[in-house]
């Protein structure tokens, strides 16, 4: 799974493929670190909520939103380190079973944003954890074509869905998300209203 092992796509390439498939009106919650910063660089939308702090909480924010807005398909773009930190939320999602919730985990098996320290995702199979927790759809993908196929499939089915995307450690040259957090809130709420 490490970059030196070959064909695996980078996190940014996986994010790009996902952004191309996400419907324009779908709210997206993105975890802190590189996932948010790369998403912003690839294409900003008011329906993107960039979470810069509160590591581990992206899925819980998405879940709260999915419960409040059952008519909106809520998508969370998460990291393996983030998921391991907020692991209990997989249980909450599995128990509440929101049909309109898709949890995508960009799994590079490291804490990429803090210097590529190894995470336990190397040994802990997060897709199996999600399945045991009660997610309705669970898939694990590596190749871009599989990612596109499975994500499309999840968009069309009832959730909660969990898509584990194996990615490399490679990171883009990206700066901080240059938006003021209260402005992120305001435009997100406006776009959703």
């Amino acid at each position: 799974m490490r970059p030196e092992e070959g064909t695996i796509q980078s996190r940014a390439r996986a994010i790009q493929a996902l952004l191309e498939l996400i419907p324009g009106d779908a709210p997206v919650i993105i975890c802190n670190g590189f996932p948010s910063r790369e998403t912003f660089k690839l294409g900003d939308r008011p329906t993107y909520f960039y979470m810069v702090g509160s590591m581990g909480m992206a899925a819980a924010i998405g879940l709260g939103l999915a419960l409040a807005k059952p008519d909106k398909k809520v998508i969370v773009l998460d990291g393996d380190g983030n998921v391991l930190m907020g692991l209990g939320t997989l249980g909450t999602v599995g128990a509440l079973k929101p049909k309109n919730f898709i949890h995508v985990v960009l799994d590079n098996e490291v804490y990429g944003s803090s210097g590529n320290q190894p995470s336990y995702a190397r040994v802990v199979k997060l897709d199996q954890v999600a399945k045991a927790a009660g997610y309705a759809q669970v898939e694990r993908v590596r190749e871009r074509e599989d990612l596109v196929y499975e994500f499309k499939d999840m968009l069309s089915k009832e959730g909660p869905g969990f898509l584990l995307v194996k990615v490399s450690e490679q990171a883009e040259d990206v700066g901080w998300v240059p938006l003021d957090p209260p402005q992120i809130t305001q435009r997100f709420k406006q776009a959703l209203a």
Partner: peptide, 24 residues
């Protein structure tokens, strides 16, 4: 009531609910 498993999760659920128009 929506039970949470940790208080940080509960706070984040509230935050998402607020984004969706609720008063949490």
């Amino acid at each position: 009531y929506t039970p949470a498993v940790r208080e940080d999760e509960a706070a984040a659920l509230a935050s998402g609910a607020y984004l969706g128009g609720k008063v949490p």
